[in-house]
Write a protein that binds this DNA or RNA. Structure first.
Lengths: 243, 243
DNA sequence: CGTTCCGTTGATCTTAGTCAAAGGGGGTGG
DNA sequence: CCACCCCCTTTGACTAAGATCAACGGAACG
């Protein structure tokens, strides 16, 4: 069964459209299976050479790099629709690790079929490259956040991006979204210490802008949050076009 | 004439091999011309939708983003062999700006021919995606540097990467390389202030590790530099495989 | 119940940012 | 040819943002 692949990048249609017959056939050609993992599983290990590539169907995770001194830099938050393992597919080995934060359901591809994809399905190959360019864009944004913003703005920007992305994936309920990460995860993404992250979050809470508790993020004042992030409120929505 | 395209990614061979006859024919099919620009030219503007894509043949430049408050984050240093404009080619518009720091010579492609490339030349499309994955890798590295390293280590790592890359492109003469950027450029890349960058550079100079003067970078003690960057000296070379 | 992991808070310290001023070319126009 | 200016570098003095250290509370779990 492949009907669960609602969010897979191999589909050209947005998430909310139904899947056509030849899309189903197409998916069967590449998909080698589905994988379900528990929270805390390592999907890709830095330096390894995974034979499998994944598309996230459900659940959330983290991409990160570990430095020599044990410090960790979170590269990005993994959400449904994300492709995992392009580097392993196209270069020799992964340059970062990926791990699940919640239980996840993944669509599995064989790495060797990637070349067949380029050969026989140029539009899908194009989509894949588009996805890589998109990822590159988000990394660039992230770099600017970490490199040039003060703590409060980093938090605001980070939370805003997570929320906007969840909105575009239909993962929100009004002002609520599931945010299963720890404050350490967020701190490691934003280049801050946990303590300072905690104190800055408290300020946002006291000012009734966001409320993050027990894995649930509530956006109390979207406009003020956008303002703090110095981002046009409407712009966020435009940034991650539907896949 | 296309024989100048020594460093173009459309070639599958490493730089130092000569170009075969059908590679020449192939390049003619896609190349629309060559562009020479002065130092300080803006090749791509954030938010714009350039109809042209480039491969760098000669010269060096900068990719950067400008924040609302005027701060600038340098995303990466542009060197020969780099592809410019994938985002414009594949997404709606560029998400960062690119400008020349020295005079540059560029190989120009038409954006619309990108699709034709995917359709008719899957190996080249694959190469392009490989290049995108490589770029993503370097961005991830860069993020970890900016997010998690103290100033001295950032400098060491940054300089080391620049030098290693120059080595793999054959742009060094022994311990020397041309590094035409300002200290502000480097500071904006590493997420530091100019003043602090300057003082940290002074320390490296005093300790006879590097000597950067008038656009010429001299690596006096490669081993100590690697040590400061907490990187295995040999590893740097492996990181950017020949294109 | 103890242990562990995570969040919270206060006190203290350090790194890096800001401000300010001076020096050094290189280019341009008088 | 000189003077002025602009841009970049260098250096010192001061400030502030954020890191580190330490301790405690609470929830989950064996």
């Amino acid at each position: 069964m492949v009907t669960d692949c609602k969010n897979c990048w191999l589909r050209k249609q947005p998430v909310f459209l139904s899947m056509s017959e030849d899309e189903l056939v197409f998916m069967h050609e590449f998909k080698t299976g589905e994988l379900e993992v528990d929270a805390g599983a390592t999907l890709m290990l830095e330096g390894s050479n995974s034979p499998q590539l994944f598309t996230v169907l459900e659940g959330m995770g983290l991409r990160y790099k570990t430095l020599e001194d044990g410090e960790r830099q979170v590269i990005s938050f993994v959400m449904p629709g994300d492709f995992i393992g392009l580097q392993a597919g196209v270069m020799q080995e992964m340059q970062h690790s990926v791990e699940s934060t919640t239980p996840m359901k993944l669509c599995v591809f064989d790495r060797r079929s990637l070349w067949r994809l380029f050969k026989d399905h140029p539009e899908r190959a194009y989509d894949l490259t588009w996805l890589a360019a998109l990822e590159e864009h988000f990394l660039g944004e992230h770099l600017a956040v970490v490199g040039r913003m003060p703590a409060e703005q980093r938090l605001a920007t980070g939370i805003l991006r997570l929320y906007d992305r969840a909105v575009s994936l239909g993962l929100t309920e009004g002002p609520w979204m599931k945010l299963p990460y720890t404050q350490k995860d967020l701190a490691d993404a934003l280049g801050l210490s946990v303590v300072h992250t905690n104190k800055t979050l408290k300020r946002l809470r006291d000012r009734r802008i966001v409320n993050w508790k027990n894995g649930d993020m509530e956006i109390l004042d979207y406009d003020r949050l956008s303002e703090m992030a110095h981002v046009d409120p409407a712009e966020g929505m435009r940034q991650r076009p539907l896949i």
